[in-house]
Nucleic acid binder design. Structure first.
Lengths: 127, 127
DNA sequence: GCAACCTTGACACGATCGTGTTAAGCTTTG
DNA sequence: CAAAGCTTAACACGATCGTGTCAAGGTTGC
């Protein structure tokens, strides 16, 4: 065969027909259509579908993540904004620059001083 | 004030205290802690939080999207894999190359021929 | 023409997201 | 010391994700 119908494609890719439609609705694939609307999956689409399963499993992420990553990768404005946001970390008081914000030092003593029991930060970063 | 406590930070950023903790658990912020475990939000964190609200609104995306984008931006392997996957589109029969996969042309006629009602692809791309 | 297949739409359901709220227990502050 | 704050844990709840399944109706194939 050449271009597979949805059920055939489902069998060779491991996805259920339902999921193939769902993935399409998520904008991650775009199978061709016969004039009557039947989906036909070419070898490229089939390969992408198999790879997609691997990706989701390998990186333990969701379809929506992949969809967003695609958006992130192609939307220049989005990427710029987010990248800038990511960069903006470490605004940590190591470089308290100027009096930009009333003396960190001062209060640091007032508040952070006189204490004990140090390692109490159980992050539980929701694996 | 200097480093704000969670409730103060909530007020100036617009997020609820609950959400500030949630956002932290998502790994998007990492406020300092007093030795006793009290969160203190510095001006940097506060700004990031305000910006975050703008980002989510402006690009209509979720916290998990931002979290994944961050991962995508910093995990070389992940990015490479996904980028490769994104690229792999348009495996469309315009460049059917060689006999890589038994004659598209041939079957194209067998299946796609003799039909009418053309524009029936309502995408409904789940806005 | 009838069985087999495809299409969209909808109901369902557990899982997770985004939020609020409350409980139980330290800490800071007046 | 008592009130006010902070912390984590947990229950709750509507919304969306990921899937299955079923229904109603065209299409294809023998």
């Amino acid at each position: 065969m050449e271009g597979l119908t949805i059920n055939e494609a489902a069998e060779t890719t491991g996805w259920s027909p339902r999921m193939l439609r769902y993935i399409e609705s998520a904008g991650l694939i775009e199978p061709l259509r016969t004039p009557k609307g039947y989906r036909i999956f070419g070898p490229g689409e089939l390969q992408r579908l198999r790879t997609l399963r691997e990706l989701l499993a390998r990186f333990d992420c969701a379809l929506s993540d992949v969809a967003f990553a695609r958006r992130y990768a192609s939307d220049q404005e989005l990427r710029a904004a987010l990248e800038h946001w990511f960069e903006r970390r470490a605004e940590r008081p190591e470089g308290v620059a100027s009096g930009d914000w009333l003396s960190w030092e001062q209060r640091k003593h007032e508040r952070l001083l006189a204490q004990d029991t140090p390692p109490r930060l159980t992050e539980t970063t929701a694996a």
